[in-house]
């Protein structure tokens, strides 16, 4: 076991973990933050996207020990008293069908818009290549991200 310390959604956690523990399992099972989903588990679908030291990453492909000393934001930490503009936009535009990909979509999209506030539709589509929606609800997702970019 290896001791790690991470700050998740503003709160500091120190835990003993097995080196093989994946960051997504640490977040879900150790910290009980189950908003971050696991779907493909092969770094393709993006359902497990979180922000690790300010970057969108797939937490199924990071070991918890690699995140030692890092600052993490999950979907639970995005709202600040009221819904984050990206969450509000997904609500307004109905940017989801079953909702399973939504936490990852919102985390990836929030970072896209933060990095590129003047983002175009083509850039949104290219920027969300790492997030799959099996309901194929992409049209409303694109509309939601475009709304959030204007917010």
């Amino acid at each position: 076991m290896t001791a790690i310390n991470v700050v998740v959604n503003g709160k500091s956690y120190t835990r003993e973990v097995e080196p093989r523990l994946l960051l997504v399992d640490f977040i879900r099972d150790t910290l009980s933050l189950t908003g971050t989903n696991i779907a493909c588990d092969t770094s393709q679908c993006g359902a497990c996207t979180i922000h690790l030291d300010g970057q969108a990453v797939k937490s199924c492909t990071v070991l918890a020990v690699q995140a030692d000393g890092s600052t993490i934001t999950t979907i639970e930490g995005l709202a600040n008293g009221k819904l984050h503009p990206m969450q509000q936009a997904f609500w307004d535009q109905h940017g989801l069908q079953c909702g399973y990909c939504t936490p990852g979509m919102i985390m990836a999209a929030a970072k896209l818009v933060e990095d590129n506030p003047e983002i175009t539709e083509a850039e949104i589509r290219h920027g969300l290549e790492g997030n799959l929606c099996r309901c194929t609800g992409y049209q409303n997702i694109i509309a939601a991200v475009a709304q959030a970019a204007k917010a």
């Binding site: 770094s43 969108a56 492909t61 990836a108 920027g127 290549e129």
Partner: peptide, 9 residues
């Protein structure tokens, strides 16, 4: 390569 999240790591 991959997608933005993959390129970040």
């Amino acid at each position: 390569i991959g997608d933005p999240q993959v390129r970040n790591r």
